[in-house]
Design a binder for these strands. Structure first.
Lengths: 235, 235
DNA sequence: CGAGCGCTTGACCGGCGTCAACACCCGTGG
DNA sequence: CCACGGGTGTTGACGCCGGTCAAGCGCTCG
């Protein structure tokens, strides 16, 4: 699969300033002076669901700010099974680790159609030498990533299947519509929670029967959260 | 419990330059000029095993470089059970997240007797404004922390009990003596691997019987790794 | 309308949790 | 020196949760 569209969106300071993501993005509080230092193009890119954005250990010269959609970070075990270590959502940074290591630590695959803003690492590096603002932003992104990683371990990969699935529904609530939660294929959910897809399916059915959630669409991807409190206290 | 000793060890540039940890520590490649900017004292501290270094969500004004020993990062679930999200070893930074958030994301408890070097966040912040070297070091520490977090999820919390315990033995190999591995109380191991202590104990017994590891001490904390390859390919 | 994919549901089984007894180590005190 | 007790690790018996295998359903798309 190949990118749907690649178009130059940020042609300079003006476009950057207009970006709706600015407050979540890396360049949130850069000023005119900072932007004037940017000479390499920053691309605005869309990918279809299932597009592989980068491979595990692939060398990388870009980080991406995720503007829309969701991305899974996947590691493949020596025996060939896939483990999803985290899901990135809007405002998260794809490939942050390439800043330090020059290569990506895991495979990144679009879970939905996705819009990203692709930034050359060279820009980040040169900016962070001179701009304390981008430095603060970067620290913030690192800490959010680390916090998320720990959350995935403590919340989604601990305890019974019922508890894990419950926590995943809570984690995947929409930013704008709190009562809705979007989940994934049962197989992907299994790879996130270390459960088999049948167990995930059974558990979801039970939660619907228990009146904690209610399916919204036909494909089993969007659910309404009825009883968040019980979900959160599930053992 | 209280710290065993608190003594001022780094009284300035001279002592810092002599530190054996310099190449792993945050201040690895600072120069005279950088050190001259440090006016707040940097303390060299020891803690006994089981000492609680900081609490979850506690406000923090220090990060610590771990010079010797091991530290567990613990989160307590709503229902009161404890989950160990990671173990820090020498060269790792305790409380990195306080740099961004001003508070610690998890509880930190010494697993062994521990030596740390405690650095005020104010120093890190002022240095990183002016010294690109510390900035590079910080990025490196962040990326190592994130990588470790993902490793814990992908390696230690995925698959059968046998596989998890095997991966833990490999993860806890000594830096200097590769064939040795130090583990923890069966309960702590359970909290790391999401297993019950009886399961951990049974699995270790089986590995000894299978000839993959061999106990070195009487207390069941140190093992010799006989067959690392089979351990690593355990399903 | 039929093929194919993903989701659900059922039957069965095995691995891990639960509960309990016992072994071992070490400190303390007689 | 031994007796005792508490903490930790080990081992056993049994039950249940979740894995395995398989059949069937519903949606989507050719």
């Amino acid at each position: 699969m190949i990118p749907v569209t690649i178009r130059q969106a940020w042609k300079g300071t003006a476009d950057c300033a207009k970006c709706a993501m600015r407050e979540m993005a890396l360049f949130a509080d850069l000023n005119e002076d900072d932007f004037s230092q940017i000479h390499t193009p920053i691309d605005d890119i869309s990918y279809h669901a299932d597009y592989r954005i980068h491979a595990e250990r692939q060398k990388g010269e870009f980080v991406m700010t995720l503007r829309r959609g969701m991305v899974k970070l996947v590691r493949t075990t020596p025996d060939g099974r896939e483990r999803i270590v985290r899901v990135l959502r809007q405002g998260d940074v794809i490939g942050l680790e390439a800043l330090a290591l020059g290569q990506y630590g895991s495979e990144a695959v679009a879970l939905t159609d996705v819009m990203v803003c692709r930034i050359p690492i060279s820009i980040i590096k040169s900016l962070s030498l001179n701009s304390p603002r981008i430095h603060t932003r970067l620290t913030e992104k690192w800490s959010v990533a680390l916090q998320n990683a720990d959350d995935w371990l403590a919340d989604l990969n601990f305890g019974s299947a019922y508890r894990r699935v419950a926590q995943l529904f809570l984690k995947m609530r929409h930013f704008d519509r709190n009562e809705l939660s979007t989940v994934f294929s049962r197989e992907d959910m299994g790879a996130m929670l270390d459960l088999k897809l049948e167990t995930v399916s059974r558990t979801i059915s039970k939660m619907v029967a228990d009146g904690l959630i209610r399916p919204v669409d036909k494909s089993g991807r969007i659910y309404e959260i009825i009883d968040a409190n019980t979900l959160n206290n599930a053992i």
